[in-house]
């Protein structure tokens, strides 16, 4: 069994809002304020093999975006380690560190905020390759042309600014920028959520074409189940910082085990369901500042038993290529 391209082991990411001097004084004098900790990602492990498309699904507060940024190297994990091609990325230095930094790139959600409005497209795409020596200043123009063609943009537009393009085109510019440094692994953080439906289809097809042509591996983060079902080989479902279920796509979508996954699938609107009676799960998604005890989902779970509020269930195998974190998984599988 070859080394997975990317592996994360027991990664947690916490954001602590420390008190400043004024706050500390106030707390000492008895005011009701204290440090706030957000457990954005809580003890997540996963492996991604070369060539796979792994989908990461969840709603707000589940930590998928934070996890994506940890994988991409934008955030450092509070606990745990990230391995690229078997090496711990926090231990890397020099040339190898730079190699790995460039090998993992990210495509962002907001096509407007993810591009520098004051830079021409040519510079947005060409800055990093020139900076890292992948091309020279004199050859930058041709280099950029080639990449723009690959993502379906007309190279004659490269002197323009982002605001002169549509949302779908801007997203292509973002993809071009990532491709320009010859990555091996792309983290797509809700990369199509802000686009129109017809443009989403174009960009999804583009991702798939690029995967073939450049031999890429993807971590595809999305809240849109139907898109994930369409393109992912494996899927992880997250809730409030933890992975609750994971497995190959067919398994998760056809035979979900965790009550949250079932609810998510049941509630997602589908074209073939007309005049349906929505029977939603009750309750709000809890705040990551105050996660419920034990299994995070227990307050909203229609099947919760006593144990669920006391002890967080571990991820364990349900079937082949299918794991879930639920005390009642035997019953549901």
């Amino acid at each position: 069994m070859s080394t997975p391209l990317l592996e994360i082991r027991n990664v947690s990411k916490r954001f602590v809002k420390k008190l400043d001097v004024a706050g500390k004084i106030a707390a000492r004098l008895g005011a009701d304020i204290s440090e706030e900790t957000v457990h954005a990602v809580d003890n997540v492990s996963m492996t991604i093999n070369k060539g796979e498309v792994v989908g990461l699904v969840g709603e707000s507060g589940c930590g998928k975006s934070t996890l994506g940024r940890v994988v991409a190297g934008i955030h450092n994990p509070t606990d745990g380690q990230v391995f690229f091609e078997g090496q711990d990325i926090s231990a890397l230095e020099g040339v190898r560190k730079r190699e790995v930094t460039l090998a993992v790139q990210m495509i962002f959600q907001d096509p407007f905020a993810s591009l520098n409005q004051r830079m021409r497209v040519e510079d947005i795409i060409g800055e990093a390759p020139v900076y890292h020596g992948l091309t020279t200043r004199s050859e930058k123009s041709d280099y950029v042309d080639e990449i723009m063609e690959k993502v379906g943009l007309d190279p004659s537009l490269k002197k323009r600014y982002p605001h002169q393009f549509s949302g779908g085109q801007r997203q292509r510019i973002g993809i071009a920028r990532a491709l320009a440094v010859k990555p091996r692994f792309l983290v797509c953080d809700e990369a199509i959520a802000a686009l129109d439906v017809s443009i989403q289809a174009q960009v999804i097809n583009l991702f798939m074409d690029l995967r073939e042509e450049f031999d890429l591996t993807y971590l595809f983060i999305s809240h849109d189940l139907s898109v994930v079902e369409h393109i992912a080989d494996r899927v992880l479902i997250m809730y409030l910082g933890r992975v609750v279920e994971s497995g190959i796509t067919e398994e998760i979508f056809d035979r979900p085990v965790h009550p949250y996954t079932s609810a998510l699938l049941a509630e997602a609107p589908r074209l073939d369901q007309r005049k349906r009676e929505f029977a939603p799960i009750k309750g709000e998604i809890p705040s990551p500042l105050e996660p419920p005890s034990g299994c995070h989902f227990h307050p909203r779970c229609p099947h919760a038993i006593g144990d669920c509020s006391r002890q967080a269930p571990a991820l364990e195998a349900v079937r082949q290529n299918h794991i879930a974190a639920c005390h009642l998984r035997e019953r549901f599988s």
Binding site: S166, S198, I199, A201, I204, V227, E229, L271
Partner: peptide, 24 residues
């Protein structure tokens, strides 16, 4: 037709989606 074809669903898992050419 194009819009309906652009929506990914279980029916076209893994296949190329129908895409409407051009921009909005």
């Amino acid at each position: 037709v194009g819009l309906l074809g652009s929506v990914p669903s279980a029916n076209n898992r893994g296949q190329r989606l129908y895409q409407i050419a051009g921009m909005t």
